[in-house]
Structures are given as C-alpha cells and as structure tokens.
Design a protein around this nucleic acid. Structure first.
Length: 640
RNA sequence: GCCAGCGUAGCUCAGCCGGUAGAGCAGCUGAUUUGUAAUCAGCGGGUCGGGGGUUCGAAUCCCUUCGCUGGCUCCA
C-alpha cells in the first residue's frame, strides 16, 4: 500500500496510485458536475495534478473567481500557442492573467497588425475546437532547457534559469509547451468565450533598457454573457470618456500651441471647478484649516534643500535670471514649510493645518500623459499639517473624515483604502515610523473603512494612506493621499518649543483629498457621464421660448431665477422648440422650461427634466424653492 | 522616454496603389412663428498638424518635428 495515496474529497476517501492524476477519482466520486480544478489548502491544482502525497481536496467549478484567473491564464497559453503556430520563429515571453483578462508578450521583428489579431483569434478557436488536453509536465531543469533550446525559445530559457529549481513544471497542449507554474484547465475546449483586444509595446521584464516586446491583450470568461457584459462595459467606459465629453460639452481644451499636458478650463468647466473649490474651501474652514497662497517658482536652492533636485525626477529645467536659478514648483510643501519657519512655533499653537489649492508643474514623460488624469500642470488640493506626536492619530482621523465627507458629497460611496508601510530604504527615526504607522492604522480602524496593508510599499520619507474611489461603473481612481514626511521635517529642521522649553520636531502630514482638480474633474465627468448634478451643472436651467412673442416672457422668468442665484440661459435662436430641446438635451442641461402662450398667460412653467422628459406645469415660486433644496443638499438626482 | 497607431473645415469623419479636397453637423444669410430630441433653402470656411525630401505633380510615398491614442515605465 506504499504507493497508494489517500485523497479526501469533501470527506469521501479515495485511494489512488502514486503519480496518477487526481482526476482518477472522478469516475468513482459522486459529483453533480465535473470540476475543472481542485482546491487543496487554499491552492488550486490541475485535474491532471499527479498525486504525490495524501491530499484533502474540494472541487472547483466554473463560477469560482479563482477559476476565472486560471481560465485566463490558459487563454494566454492558447494565445501563445496560436501565435507560435502562425508565426514560426516568434519568441514567447510571459503571459499571465491580469485583472480584466490576460496578455502574452512576444519578441518579433514586425509588429502585429489588427488583421494578425483576427487571424490569431481564428487559430485560437481552431485549437479550442480540437479540445487538446492541457498536460502538466514535471521535468528536470536540464530537460526543460533542452526542450526550449530545440524550439529556439531563448527568453524561456532565461526564465527557467532564473526561476526554476531542480525540477520545473511545464504545460503542454498539442505541440505547444510553456514553462509555467500552473494550474490550468483540463483542456483547450474549456476556453470558449474570449476576445483579443489590443496590441502594445512592453519591455522584457519591465526593464526599459531591455528588448521591446509586443504585448497582445485579450480577455476571457466562462460564459458568453459575462464576455458580452465586459465588452459592453468597455463601450460604456468609452461613452463616458472625459476627453470625449470634455470636447462635446465644451468643458476644457488643450492645444498644440500650449504644449502637451497643459489644460485650459473653458467657461463651462471653469464654473464647475469654481463650485468645487468653493465647497472645498468652506469645508476646510469648518474643519479648522487656514489657507496659504504660494508662488509658482522659487530659487533652485530651496529644492536642493528639500532634496527634490536629488530624489525627484519630474522637475522642469530650472530658469536662469538675475544671477539666480529658479525652479517651477513640482510640489507645494517647501512653501508651507518656509511659512512655518517664518517664526518660532510653540507647542500651544499646534496643530497647524494649512491648505492651498496649489498649482504645480511636473515634467511627466510624454508617453504617460492622459487627458485630465495625467497632465504637466495641475492644481493639488493640498494641505500640510504640523502637529505633535500626541496629536497625530486625531489629525489623521480628521483628515480621513474630511476626505470621506468631500468625496461622499460627489456621490462616491465605495472606496479602496491602502496603508503603505515602511520600505527597506527609508529616512527618519524608526520610532517615529512606528508611531506614525500605528496612528495611521488606528485612524483607519476608527473610520470603519475596510483597508488593506501594503507592507513595505510606503515612500522613503514616510508611511501613507491612499484612498481610491469607485466610480459609477466600478472603476477605482486614486484621489486621496495622506503621507507622513520625515524627510522634509528633518531637512528644514522644523521645530517647536515644547512645554519643557526644549525644541522638538513636529510631525509633518502632507495630504490631498481630491488629489488634483484636473484628475478629479476628469473622474467626475466620467462618473456622472457628463450629467452633472444640479449644484454643479454649468447651466442649470434653460428657457425655450416657442415663438418670438414668448421671448420677453422667457427673459423675464430667466431674470427671476438668475436673481435667486441660478445659472440660467434663454435659447433665443430662431429654431423650432423641438430643435431647442434637442440642443439642451445634448448639452445635458438639467432643467428646460418651455415658454409658449399657455405659460405667458398662466405665469407657470412647463418643465422638462434631462433624462426624464416632460414633467408638466410648475409654479415659479415652488420650483425655485425646490431647486434651492436640491442644490443645497447637493442631490445627485432631480426629484420634483 | 520606448513600441505601435493616428493627425484632412469649429466638430465627427470620407478621400490615401501620387493628378492638386468632400459629406453631415456647427457657423452666416434668408424664408418659416412653430408645444417636448434635428423646418427648408442658399452661402462662406481647409497652406490636408509644422518643416524638409522624392516626383512633371504629394492629403496620398520618405525623413524630421509637434500633438494625440493604446500600452510599457511612472504617477496627483
């Protein structure tokens, strides 16, 4: 019985011969459906996993989220299989499952074209229809290297030599073999619902000095419906694209004449920014902040002292005049620090909370620029908090509370929260790090938000909390960041006089809640799909006179609403009312008032609500009251 | 910065195996005075991103530069 392995499948015991596949038990096991994988001690195993020891296993079916990753990984192999079939001589790199699908990297002289992608996808489907078994092979390192040498796959050999132990696992389907940990689906026939999406460049092992590979992206699901849903999601995301809507709604613009990554806020976008900033300022004042204004340039020496010239690689080149070098600011911190140091500080005046909508300039590499999300000139909703150690936790709690309050007002209710702790290379005292990390974590616990700890992922100068917001279609966007900074406190020798009459080093918290006005605006556009809530809508209400004779009445009414503080317009173009409605709907103006004979004589309004159609007649006074309520509550919907 | 792709009227796009630019919308003018998503007609508008080259001739081919897009890398 020595070569018998005991398999415990959900309590049922089976004995199989050592080295045979786990799937051997399936013929005897009474399972309602055939599993695609097994799970043992949290690890997924192939059906063809050779029984090498006694195991407790449970079946894994298609609905399992972990199985989806395996499906995609197998789909990546399928892709590489098809590519090596169609393009002999291509070197394969790596091909993992990723968040929304999978990719595979290839080394090939000529780039893949869209037609190539179609052909590859076709070949993939052929391989699927062959339903080739996907076999796990355990080989000696030498054997494996020999196999890949015969196939001319030198990148694979490099990987095996780097990662493989004495024994390496490979997976084979048909005549395609890949070095891979697995696990994989039982056969290619399981990969039914997939699609190749795009090609792009990628560096071998992510090193930009290394060879440039071609990466093919695709996605795969267990059902056609899931695949369709995902493709629809991509379509929906495209419709919400802030670059598209920014153009259509005339919110902002860019121009070759300005340069890459520089944005002009057009009036319709600028009014939204103004409203956001006013709200932001109000809430900061309520939360005990003071405001700061600082210039856009400062002597280069300031940035030398702060360490930015040394550590920060996104600075614009310095300007040179009157015998000094000046630097366009990439950050606001040094200015706030200079203000702090303008006189001696006492423990009594801490904490100091200084906020600034500070515009900074960063020389981002041209390839990373993206709409409003990644630009070269942007305004951070910045603040620096100088506090004592005993105030740290309370201050961080306040910051998180304020962040959630602000973000919540825009309708963001779900967050991804991350605490990044001390990395290997760091500055500052260990005890300060520990104290700060504890304060950050305590504040998170207190907030009740679920969070995740990114061990060792903090910046060299301090631990931090990042908060990402989930938008209307479930995407996460980085906004809030709360960072301790031991570097600047040290470099600028920040002090306060304590109760004991001695100098002490204050803690410096650097934080931005919305992140930057530009990125946040981009996220908002996509979150709302351009349908800004009434309090933010550039034009809240438009009056649409039916004929010339109704224009005077429309103007008079518009004036009434304007006097009440609403942003209103009159469409006096010589168009039919249908056309005017269409225009207003296209511009996503929340409220439309149609003014014709009936309204002129009754003094009432015929109201149409964007996305809701005709809502009938309203008394002016009542409507104004209701609109004020909606604006004051920052309601996302217009419910009349 | 790197790989790939793109850049034609204000906008969306057609034209691109070389023969010297077109549509819809927008704009302007006129007619129409109209009740909940496009009234009709006419007109104007482009050094085809910029520069250079090949050619008798370039929007079309080549080089270069700027900008944009998808990624890599990085990040608010």
């Amino acid at each position: 019985m020595e070569d018998q392995i005991k398999i415990n499948l959900n309590g049922s015991i089976f004995f199989i011969k050592k080295g045979t596949h786990l799937s051997e038990i399936l013929s005897e096991a009474q399972l309602s459906d055939k599993p695609i994988l097994f799970r043992s001690e949290g690890q997924l195993l192939d059906l063809s996993y050779p029984a090498d020891r006694d195991l407790e296993i449970s079946p894994v079916y298609a609905g399992d989220p972990a199985a989806l990753e395996v499906l995609r990984h197998s789909a990546a192999h399928l892709l590489a299989h098809a590519v090596t079939d169609l393009f002999p001589g291509v070197q394969v790199g790596i091909g993992p499952a990723i968040e929304n699908g999978f990719f595979y990297d290839f080394l090939r002289d000529t780039p893949f074209t869209p037609e190539d992608l179609e052909a590859i996808e076709k070949r993939m489907r052929e391989i699927v229809s062959l339903n080739q078994p996907i076999k796990r092979l355990v080989l000696s390192k030498e054997e494996a290297i020999k196999i890949f040498r015969e196939r001319g796959q030198t990148l694979k050999i490099e990987l095996i030599e780097e990662k493989g132990g004495d024994q390496v696992s490979c997976y084979q389907q048909g005549d395609f073999i890949d070095f891979c940990l697995g696990p994989h689906l039982p056969s290619t026939g399981y990969i039914q619902h997939f699609k190749l999406l795009s090609v792009s460049g990628a560096y071998w092992k992510g090193d930009e000095r290394g060879p440039q590979l071609q990466r093919i992206y695709g996605t795969a699901f267990f059902s056609q419906k899931d695949l369709d849903d995902y493709l629809n999601f991509l379509e929906e995301a495209k419709k919400r694209d802030h670059r598209r809507l920014g153009q259509d709604l005339d919110l902002y613009g860019t121009s070759e004449d300005l340069g890459a990554g520089l944005v002009i806020w057009h009036p319709r976008g600028a009014i939204i920014r103004h409203l956001i900033e006013s709200f932001w300022k109000e809430e900061h004042l309520k939360d005990g902040y003071d405001f700061i204004y600082s210039p856009h340039i400062a002597k280069l020496d300031l940035w030398k002292r702060s360490g930015h010239t040394e550590f920060y690689d996104a600075m614009f080149p310095a300007l040179d005049f009157e015998g000094f070098k000046y630097q366009l600011k990439p950050m606001n911190c040094p200015f706030h620090i200079i203000a702090y140091k303008s006189r001696q500080r006492s423990y009594r005046e801490l904490p100091l909370r200084w906020a600034e909508l500070g515009t900074v300039y960063r020389y981002e590499r041209s390839g990373v620029l993206h709409g409003l999300c990644r630009v070269r000139g942007f305004t951070q909703d910045d603040a620096h908090i100088f506090c004592r150690g005993d105030q740290l936790e309370e201050e961080i709690k306040r910051v998180i509370r304020l962040a959630i309050k602000l973000l919540g007002a825009f309708g963001f209710k779900e967050y991804g929260v991350y605490l990044a702790t001390r990395p290997e290379k760091y500055v500052g005292r260990l005890e300060d790090w520990n104290r700060a990390e504890k304060a950050l974590e305590e504040a998170l616990k207190h907030s009740g938000l679920p969070y995740q700890i990114d061990e060792g992922e903090g910046v060299f100068y301090g631990p931090k909390i990042d908060i990402k917001i989930k938008d209307a279609i479930g995407r996460l966007w980085q906004c809030t960041t709360v960072q301790l900074d031991f570097n600047l406190a040290e470099r600028f020798d920040l002090t306060y006089v304590g109760e004991d009459g001695n100098f002490h080093r204050p803690f410096l918290i650097h934080r931005a809640l919305l992140g930057s006005m530009e990125r946040f605006f981009g996220v908002l556009i996509e979150h709302y799909k351009g349908n800004f809530p009434l309090w933010l809508a550039p034009v809240q209400m438009i009056f649409l006179p039916i004929a010339d004779r109704h224009e005077a009445c429309a103007r008079e009414l518009a004036e009434k609403f304007r006097a009440e503080g609403f942003r209103v317009q009159v469409d006096d173009s010589r168009e039919k009312v249908n056309k005017k409605i269409r225009e207003a709907e296209t511009l996503k103006i929340p409220l439309m008032a149609i003014i014709g004979d009936k309204e002129v004589s009754s003094g009432k309004l015929s109201l149409r609500v964007h996305g809701q159609g005709d809502r009938g007649q309203f008394e002016v006074v009542e409507l104004i009251a209701r609109m004020k309520e909606i604006v004051n509550n920052k309601s996302l919907e217009i419910i009349l």
